[in-house]
């Protein structure tokens, strides 16, 4: 398990802010994740020991799980995995739409989130798309919980 750089670059932070905002968007005139400032909490979670994999058993060999139920088996930390997702999403946006993920129309961004959720996104291997979706959702829920669970 390598230790991820705890510092998010500005561009990565913006990508994650948009992703989390699509998971918890503005609704009925009430602010979404971005306007609630949840990205600050997300960034803090990514720097936390748990997300950095500091309490993770790193003894080898790393082997693929034979079936569901074996939990985290990646040599990457969860934070490293999330940073990979952000990179892959941005590369996809440039490749498919000629511009970075940030600034794409919400409909296009939602399509990307849907592709992560249903596993059809082609630009990720470790983490797999569905795992990437679960990681982003966990970040949202942790950030929302730590921010007072606003509705």
């Amino acid at each position: 398990m390598t230790s991820a750089d705890p510092a998010l670059t500005d561009s990565t932070r913006e990508i994650l802010a948009d992703l989390v905002d699509r998971l918890f968007p503005e609704h009925d005139g009430r602010p979404g994740a971005k306007d609630l400032g949840l990205i600050a909490v997300v960034a803090a979670r990514l720097r936390s020991p748990g997300w950095q994999g500091r309490h993770t058993y790193a003894g080898g060999p790393y082997l693929p799980a034979p079936e569901a139920g074996f939990g985290w088996q990646s040599p990457l930390s969860p934070t490293e995995s999330v940073l990979r997702v952000a990179r892959a999403v941005d590369e996809w946006a440039v490749r498919e739409h000629g511009q970075g993920f940030v600034g794409l129309d919400h409909d296009v961004q939602d399509g990307l989130v849907r592709a992560l959720e249903d596993g059809s996104f082609a630009g990720l291997d470790d983490p797999a798309p569905r795992q990437a979706f679960e990681l982003l959702l966990s970040l949202l829920h942790e950030a929302r919980s730590l921010s007072g669970r606003r509705r």
């Binding site: 500091r54 309490h55 993770t56 790193a58 939990g71």
Partner: peptide, 29 residues
């Protein structure tokens, strides 16, 4: 978090049945 064992120091391995390869529980949860 300080109350729960650090998996780096001690964890367990899991398999669902005899004959299956075991894998470590890398994050105790």
């Amino acid at each position: 978090r300080q109350l729960t064992e650090d998996a780096r120091l001690e964890t367990y391995t899991m398999r669902h049945r005899s004959g299956q390869a075991s894998l470590p529980i890398r994050r105790l949860n």
